[in-house]
């Protein structure tokens, strides 16, 4: 095994058995089903999944920002020694925007359109760090410089609509970084951006992560995007983690049939053109219509009887190591080999 398993790294965030339910017409339906996730100190974790897999809800639930009809049913989320899901509201407020920074998908709607961006960056500084206004503005200028906005001092007085999409996302990142968070959660931060701007933002986050020594959770649907960005990847399908592995390991040796299907369905720029893409048939189950066993079984070509009857646990591939997969068939194939 490699060095990562030898010295157990310190876990900054440790989510155990998190389940989330939504109220529907037919009663409560499980959207997230007993997820286990962790983020080590200084690590960048990529959470990958298609729409509706529960990747964004999981992160929102940690900050207790879930919409009305959606509730956490069970689980714990240990962050720096305390449970985010049970801590008091005043403690939680210190964590939100303080120790944990958030960057959302749409920089158009996540910024307040009637507030100057300087004021929006200063707000967490004044609230969390009890800074004086003048000091906060100096820090805000530094932050804008940090995220690569030219002539930052003048930009403080700009309104969001005066900035381009890429610039706005940089401002969002500056707000997320304002209080030197230990963890930055970025929810599809580049999905709304063009590819050349996306490249700028990815480079920026890579650079900042090293400079500030923070942990990052990057939520995305785009496997290609995180290949060069993260240390470890957790693949979500229908509210469960189906595979969790170091990034090189995951791409070199994808073990869950869903991960394999997902990788195969991405056209690669460097590939010699093939005519047909391999695709996964069918569609993910809707919440409330989850199959009894493995959620992927109805779309899985390798599915056996056991897959349709019980839910496979997320276990280290081959018994130990950082590569974990929730698949009966993959585990057995390895044993046989």
């Amino acid at each position: 095994m490699n060095a990562m398993t030898m010295s157990a790294p310190e876990r900054l965030l440790d989510v155990k058995g998190l389940s989330i339910e939504i109220d529907t017409r037919r009663g409560p339906a499980t959207i997230v089903d007993g997820i286990n996730l962790h983020v080590n100190k200084g690590e960048t974790l990529g959470i990958v999944g298609e729409s509706g897999c529960g990747k964004s809800l999981t992160m929102l639930s940690l900050m207790r920002l879930l919409p009305n009809k959606i509730k956490v049913k069970s689980g714990t989320a240990n962050f720096a020694g305390r449970d985010l899901l049970t801590m008091s509201k005043s403690e939680l407020r210190k964590v939100r925007g303080g120790q944990v920074g958030f960057v959302f998908q749409d920089p158009m709607t996540s910024l307040n359109p009637v507030m100057r961006i300087g004021d929006q960056i200063c707000e967490p500084l004044i609230y969390h760090k009890a800074m004086k206004r003048a000091d906060a503005r100096i820090r805000a200028t530094e932050l804008l410089r940090l995220v690569g906005i030219p002539s930052p001092a003048e930009r403080l007085d700009a309104f969001p609509h005066e900035l381009s999409g890429g610039m706005r996302q940089r401002v969002m990142i500056a707000i997320g970084l304002a209080c030197d968070p230990e963890l930055l959660i970025a929810d599809e931060p580049t999905t709304a951006l063009d590819v050349t701007i996306q490249a700028q933002i990815v480079d920026l986050v890579k650079e900042l992560r090293v400079k500030l020594g923070m942990s990052v959770v990057w939520i995305t649907h785009d496997l290609a995007l995180i290949a060069g960005l993260v240390d470890r990847v957790a693949v979500l399908y229908a509210g469960t983690v189906v595979e969790d592995a170091p990034v090189e390991e995951l791409f070199a040796n994808p073990s869950h049939p869903y991960t394999r299907g997902l990788l195969a369905s991405i056209p690669k720029l460097s590939d010699v053109a093939a005519n047909r893409l391999s695709s996964i048939g069918g569609t993910p189950p809707e919440p409330g219509r989850r199959p009894l066993g493995c959620p992927f079984a109805p779309r899985c070509q390798l599915a056996e009887d056991i897959c349709r009857q019980s839910v496979p646990p997320l276990e280290p591939l081959g018994g130990s190591g950082p590569h974990r997969v929730a698949c009966f068939v993959a585990q057995r194939q390895l044993e046989a080999a």
Partner: peptide, 24 residues
């Protein structure tokens, strides 16, 4: 544009030199 497209290959991504366009 071609250089900005991410590749689903962590080994390649960590070594390749990207030409990132500046500005908007």
């Amino acid at each position: 544009l071609l250089s900005a497209v991410p590749e689903a290959d962590p080994v390649l991504e960590k070594t390749r030199q990207r030409q990132v366009l500046q500005g908007d």
